[in-house]
Design a protein around this nucleic acid. Structure first.
Length: 110
DNA sequence: GGGCTGACTTATT
DNA sequence: CAATAAGCCAGCC
């Protein structure tokens, strides 16, 4: 229960996570660690990732703007998810070179 | 209730 | 830059 952004009554922590992720503006990206910090959940990067994995397809949450701390996509380069995330980012104007994004340039800071 | 697992991070070697 | 280790949380068996 209360696992998705569409849930009417999501758990407090998840709610914070959705809130932060949805706050990332188009053309910008953030790491799982950053999301956890901005959500007041420092050190729970893994929890953020776990929560994201439960996100249903077709959600309005911009999950594609969340990357690993080194700016790389968190999926295997041969996976379909990787391809989709990569394309979504590019369509927003984010440069993805070798599965990697320059956080210095595209990293988001509230 | 114990142990594994995972869309992770940071520090260390 | 690559490999290791420890830390963290909740769901699943």
């Amino acid at each position: 229960m209360a696992r998705f952004a569409s849930d009417p009554n999501p758990a407090p922590r998840e709610q914070m996570i959705w809130q932060v992720v949805c706050a990332i503006p188009p053309g910008r990206v953030a790491s799982y660690g950053q999301v956890s910090r901005f959500a007041g959940l420092e050190g729970l990067a893994r929890f953020v990732g776990r929560t994201m994995s439960r996100l249903p397809d077709g959600s309005d949450v911009p999950w594609h703007r969340v990357l690993k701390s080194d700016g790389r996509i968190a999926f295997p380069a041969d996976s379909s998810r990787y391809a989709e995330q990569c394309q979504r980012l590019k369509s927003e104007g984010v440069d993805v070179l070798n599965g990697r994004v320059a956080m210095k340039q595209f990293g988001w800071t509230p």
